[in-house]
Amino acid sequence: MFPTRIQLSKQTWDRLQFLQTKTRLTPNVLARIAIALALRDTQTAIINESKPDQLHVINRDVLFGGQEKAYEALIRQLCSEQKIDADPQSIVRSLIDSGLHKMGHTKTTSDLKFFFA
Rank of each mutant, 00 (worst) to 15 (best):
L78A: 09
L37D: 10
D87F: 14
T42E: 09
S9E: 03
T26H: 03
L95N: 03
I84A: 02
L8A: 14
S80I: 12
L55F: 01
K107A: 01
K10V: 12
I6L: 08
S98T: 10
F116T: 04
I58E: 05
L63P: 07
R24F: 01
M1T: 13
D53Y: 07
N48W: 08
P88W: 09
A73S: 04
L55G: 00
I46S: 00
P88E: 05
Q82M: 15
K10H: 13
N59R: 12
R32P: 05
S9I: 13
Q77P: 13
D111N: 03
I46Q: 00
K10Y: 10
T109Y: 10
L16Q: 12
E68K: 07
L30K: 03
L16H: 06
R76Y: 04
T42H: 13
N48I: 03
G104T: 06
C79K: 05
L19N: 03
Q43T: 04
Q11K: 14
R32V: 01
A34C: 04
A36H: 11
D41L: 12
K83I: 10
V62A: 08
K69L: 14
A34N: 08
L25T: 03
D61S: 11
T106H: 01
H56T: 05
A34T: 05
T106S: 01
S50H: 06
V29D: 11
D61P: 09
R15L: 03
I47H: 04
L78N: 07
Q17G: 09
R76N: 01
L63K: 06
I96V: 01
R24I: 01
F64A: 05
Q54R: 13
R5E: 15
I33G: 11
V62F: 10
P3W: 15
L74R: 13
V29I: 12
D85M: 06
T4A: 08
Q67H: 11
N59W: 15
Y71K: 02
I6H: 07
S110V: 07
S98G: 09
E68I: 04
Q82E: 12
V29K: 12
A117Q: 15
T108Q: 14
S90Y: 05
D97A: 11
C79T: 04
I46M: 00
R15K: 04
I35C: 03
D61Q: 09
S9P: 11
I35Y: 03
Q43H: 12
H105S: 02
T109N: 07
L78G: 08
L25M: 08
T12D: 02
I33M: 08
I96L: 02
L37R: 13
L8D: 13
R40M: 09
D61V: 08
Y71P: 00
M103T: 02
H101P: 02
K83T: 07
P88G: 09
F115R: 07
I46P: 04
Q82K: 15
